[in-house]
């Protein structure tokens, strides 16, 4: 295994996702290549620092209610839009990310 091949497999190596044969070949390379060993170590440190920055959060108070309120508002918008329009368009309009503006007149 050469240096570019090793660099391709660094992440999978750190995550234990290599086959035993691949891991053994990579270990053999690391034992004699200081540069790859240093890069791998830095990558391990960076990944660890990222994990340390992870948090477990609770959604803000009233979040679920705000979602259903947004859905209800969209459905009301949809009802307004259905007047004089084919139902299929109205159904789509009700679920658009941004409420469509009623056409003038």
């Amino acid at each position: 295994m050469n240096c570019p091949e090793v660099r391709q497999l660094c992440a999978a190596y750190l995550d234990g996702e290599l086959t035993p044969a691949e891991a053994a070949a990579l270990d053999a390379h690391l034992a004699k290549c200081e540069s790859c060993a240093a890069e791998l170590e830095l990558e391990r440190e960076v990944a660890a620092a990222l994990r340390e920055g992870a948090v477990s959060l609770a959604a803000p108070e009233g979040f679920a209610r705000s979602v259903t309120a947004a859905l209800a508002a969209r459905q009301r918008g949809r009802l307004l839009l259905t007047r004089g329009r084919p139902p299929v368009n109205a159904r789509r309009a009700g679920c658009r990310s941004f409420p469509a503006r009623p056409s003038p007149g």
Binding site: Q8, C10, A11, V46, L50
Partner: peptide, 11 residues
């Protein structure tokens, strides 16, 4: 491959 490239870029 995406994780590998992303980790390398982050590093």
């Amino acid at each position: 491959s995406r994780i590998n490239r992303a980790r390398a870029a982050l590093k």
